[in-house]
Design a binder for these strands. Sequence first.
DNA 1: TACCAATAGTTAGTGTGGCAAATATATAGA
DNA 2: TCTATATATTTGCCACACTAACTATTGGTA
Lengths: 149, 149
Amino acid sequence: MTQELFARYSFLLDRTARKVKQYAQHQFKTGDFDVTVDQWLVLKNLSENGLLSQTELANLVFKDHPTLTRIIDLLCKKGYVERIPHPQDRRSFQLHLTESGVAKVTELRPKILEIREKAWENLTESDFEEFKRILNTIYQNLDGQVIEE
Amino acid sequence: MTQELFARYSFLLDRTARKVKQYAQHQFKTGDFDVTVDQWLVLKNLSENGLLSQTELANLVFKDHPTLTRIIDLLCKKGYVERIPHPQDRRSFQLHLTESGVAKVTELRPKILEIREKAWENLTESDFEEFKRILNTIYQNLDGQVIEE
DNA sequence: TACCAATAGTTAGTGTGGCAAATATATAGA
DNA sequence: TCTATATATTTGCCACACTAACTATTGGTA
């Protein structure tokens, strides 16, 4: 009985996640940010963590390698990121924010924080803590289930 | 500043939504369900609501029209759905579950409810209510529209 | 009747997400 | 050294999301 009800979480979760991305992407577009939401996530993590390999970055942003390869291709094309050959390991790159990339992060960070705030109208700080706890519990419940076996 | 903190919700939300879909899709695949997670959502809603136009269905599942067109194309190709010309409006179709589609829904429904339950280990019914409330509030904050239950 | 805005659905283009397989390089062990 | 295995990244294929533009049809109204 509650089974039917519980199963709705997947629909609501997916719908809200899409709305959040769609809202942000729309703001990005009207503000001429010149990056997508996912490209921003990558830029932001690069700016906070210095030189990273693609694998290290993939683990930070929880994206798979092919997806990250493509996002980085686009960021390189836009001139915000460079792939620098790793000095010891010729399989690998060190990702580096260009000057233009640093400037982009500096420019966008405050604007994006403002955009992100909109979602939390009518919600409290403890709502946020609850939300975070539940999301992380769900994540952990399902994590590893895919890889093993 | 809590602003920085709050902005993390978008990352956690996106990450968890992807994990939920990935987990379910993996189970669908190992169980040879012959549909994707999103195709299932469409089948399920068709089975619960009888004849629908694509626009009506799009509003139910909160997908945009181009996406729905393609999902329905795939479901038609698999023989689970038919597009029946609307008797009064030649622009429109009535979507109809085939016999094979009805059988598929009957077969999959209990299996999918079981798959969906996995996410709620270590969580309570009131967690679920909180989660639903917060998700819907975020959705409304960004959409401006009221959502029924 | 003739026009025109609104509606139903499709097509095209770009970006993202996931899986599997391929390539290149590194490293451990025989 | 030679080989097997592991790792870093890329490529190919398919599905989905969003936007914009397009076709066909409908329905209201001048």
